[in-house]
Design a protein around this nucleic acid. Sequence first.
DNA 1: ACCCAGGGTCATA
DNA 2: TATGACCATGGG
Length: 222
Amino acid sequence: MMSAPPVHRLFTLLLAAYGAQRWWPARSAFAMMAGAVLVQNTAWTGAALAVRRLEEAGALHPAALRALEETWLWELIRPAGYFRVKAKRLRALAEFLQGHGDDPERLFQQELGALRRALLGVHGIGQETADSILCYGAAQPIFVVDAYTRRLFHRLGWSSPQASYETLQSMVHHAMPPDAGPAAAEEFAEFHALIVRHAKRHCRARPLCIGCPVTFCPMHRP
DNA sequence: ACCCAGGGTCATA
DNA sequence: TATGACCATGGG
């Protein structure tokens, strides 16, 4: 049985190297949730443009979005890619919120476990999107696992390439206990953002390890 | 021209 | 439960 991986040390190194990312400053909780769907497997710039276009069209509210004609919705979100798929998912999200008074903030009052299960029940919301909403929308102490996390943890020798979502998430939750209050939630939010930031610089398809701040990485070169 | 980007669903075995 | 096809635009 090997010792626990230095997860929190990774966080500290990334924070020192890149600074606080202050991710996802959405205008409203619904804007954040819609953005979480629109950014799925897509570059942020396209998703952000789609959110802006929805806002300009006055459609950045559950009821307004439900009232949009399908083909018009397609045109608004086209820059985010997968526009037919994502239109359907946004509609499912808006219909889900209708059952909660069109009020995400009220939805977020639910107990965490029940809230997560409810989100996962919405068409188009999987684990990563659900946890993004919990972390960045509902300010809950939940770490968001993504492909970068999987690749980085594997590269560090902390996990197998096909480690499950839960396995990776529990590694972080274990190292950075969620019961540490609101400060912990902020750390999880920063940690995920820092991993994405780091991946763009150093851990793309080919490892660019020169100058990498993760000094304990087996592939690190000074 | 190719690769990939802040995933998830669905059909199939 | 575990793969694979599919979805689509935009930037490097």
